[in-house]
């Protein structure tokens, strides 16, 4: 349904929620994104505001970890921008060069903009979140096993 009103200026919690949805979509595989769209019962029909393109983002660190910024390399990043038939616009910026994946994530971001479809998007993305969580926990457990436990040897005569 077309929304003629311009959306209100996003408030911080909304931005935070959108960022987490974007992060999940960015971490999803193309198959996962297709699955999310299907499970949320959403259409992939959209018009390109910007044809997906790959470019460079200069990556920055900080001197000493917390000091002045410096450039330490670049990363390939693919971006896409779409508009749904209902007028919602969506964006995606992903590491790497996968254009179909970025376009699909942008479509998902656009559906997320719509208050009516947002819960369905969030619910479907939960599967990606669960997969990520499982992987992160497995990694953390394997890393934890390599943590050094120091013990002090008894010294002296007693």
């Amino acid at each position: 349904m077309p929304s003629s009103e311009t959306p209100p200026e996003p408030v911080a919690p909304e931005v935070a929620a959108r960022r987490s949805a974007m992060a999940l979509a960015g971490a999803a595989t193309l198959a996962e994104l297709e699955d999310v769209l299907a499970r949320a019962g959403l259409s992939a029909e959209a018009e390109d505001l910007r044809v997906p393109e790959t470019g460079l983002v200069m990556t920055r660190g900080r001197i000493g970890g917390d000091g002045r910024a410096f450039n330490f390399g670049e990363a390939t990043v693919t971006r896409a921008a779409v508009r749904l038939p209902g007028g919602e616009t969506g964006f995606a910026y992903h590491l790497g060069r996968d254009r179909p994946r970025a376009r699909l994530a942008a479509i998902l971001d656009a559906h997320w903009q719509n208050a009516e479809t947002r819960p369905a998007v969030d619910a479907a993305l939960a599967a990606v979140a669960a997969r990520r969580q499982r992987e992160a926990e497995g990694r953390a457990r394997r890393v934890a096993a390599t943590r050094v436990n120091f013990f002090t040897l008894a010294r002296g005569e007693d």
Binding site: E53, T54, G55, L56, V57, M58, R60, A75, Y93
Partner: peptide
């Protein structure tokens, strides 16, 4: 290859203190 790509901009400085540490 990188010379064939457009420049989008610069990232936010990474926070290595928040790193998910493997080592």
């Amino acid at each position: 290859y990188r010379t064939t790509l457009p420049h989008f901009g610069a990232s936010e400085p990474v926070d290595t203190g928040a790193m998910t540490v493997s080592r």
